[in-house]
């Protein structure tokens, strides 16, 4: 780490920047961070006085302002028709998987009442596994 990065004011500034920049895509966070640090490095001489550091950071501008500008410049977020259709499809998959899970589980419950063919139990078990995986994956995608 360069000497200016160890400066308390710079560390505090970059920590605040990192907090504000969380709303940005990861790759953009990394690039913008590198550019800000490069900018500060070019602005400040080696072992700059605290007052010079404060002036430089003031001229650089608040991380809030920089991130706001970045968000303003970014393309529209993908809450488009395509995005919504994907979410609807995932909900349908989750519902169907739940229904199949229930249906496939019924013969397993019936074994307590009456003998059930082995092949049926194996088939139901297979369907239950597939349904459970589909349900879990669709719920995970919906959460993101």
């Amino acid at each position: 780490m360069s000497s200016f990065e160890n400066n308390p004011s710079v560390k505090k500034y970059m920590s605040f920047f990192d907090e504000q920049a969380k709303v940005l895509p990861r790759s953009r966070q990394v690039t913008l961070r590198a550019e800000i640090l490069s900018h500060i490095s070019a602005l400040l001489p080696e072992n700059a006085e605290p007052e010079a550091v404060s002036v430089a950071l003031r001229q650089l501008g608040s991380p809030v302002e920089i991130v706001s500008q970045e968000l303003e410049m970014s393309p529209e977020p993908t809450t488009t028709k395509g995005g919504r259709a994907d979410r609807v499809a995932l909900v349908v998959i989750a519902v169907l998987a739940t229904i199949w899970l229930g249906l496939a589980g019924t013969p397993l419950l019936l074994t307590t009442i009456a003998p059930t063919p082995g092949w049926l139990l194996i088939a139901c078990g297979f369907v239950m596994i597939i349904s459970a995986v589909a349900l879990v994956m669709s719920l995970r995608r919906l959460r993101h």
Partner: peptide, 16 residues
């Protein structure tokens, strides 16, 4: 420019 740091989002947009 309102502040120096705001040039980087502008440059990114020009690149995109």
């Amino acid at each position: 420019l309102t502040s120096q740091g705001t040039i980087y989002p502008l440059l990114n947009r020009l690149q995109e």
